[in-house]
């Protein structure tokens, strides 16, 4: 069982957390103007890398705050933890910069 460092509460067992999949997928600011394809990509399409991945977690049985984790999906090593509104370390090569390029 992973040990996840909640930015508000400190390290806790992963059974206290809820998983929120890939991070930095912004809800389109004007959904009405999106095509069906764009809307489907926003709703359903997610990266599935083997390696570092920026993802969302929520401390469900604790402070109930959403936050971000960069986790290696292969080794389960947690590389970075940061709050909503903050960004991953560019050196980790994950996150919105990757997504948009």
């Amino acid at each position: 069982m992973m040990l996840i460092p909640c930015p508000w509460c400190g390290p806790r067992d992963d059974s206290e957390f809820a998983y929120g999949n890939q991070a930095h997928i912004a809800r389109p600011s004007d959904p009405a103007s999106t095509s069906d394809q764009e809307w489907a990509e926003y709703l359903y399409f997610r990266d599935n890398p083997k390696g570092p991945f920026a993802e969302r977690w929520m401390h469900a049985a604790g402070c109930r705050r959403w936050f971000h984790v960069v986790r290696d999906t292969n080794s389960h090593v947690i590389l970075q933890v940061y709050k909503v509104g903050e960004w991953p370390d560019p050196a980790l090569g994950v996150g919105p910069a990757n997504k948009e390029s």
């Binding site: 809820a18 929120g20 809800r27 969302r56 929520m58 469900a60 109930r64 705050r65 959403w66 909503v84 509104g85």
Partner: peptide, 13 residues
């Protein structure tokens, strides 16, 4: 409750 909290914290903070 989870749903509303998620939108408040992540989409419309």
């Amino acid at each position: 409750m989870n749903w509303l909290e998620e939108y408040l914290q992540t989409e419309w903070p």
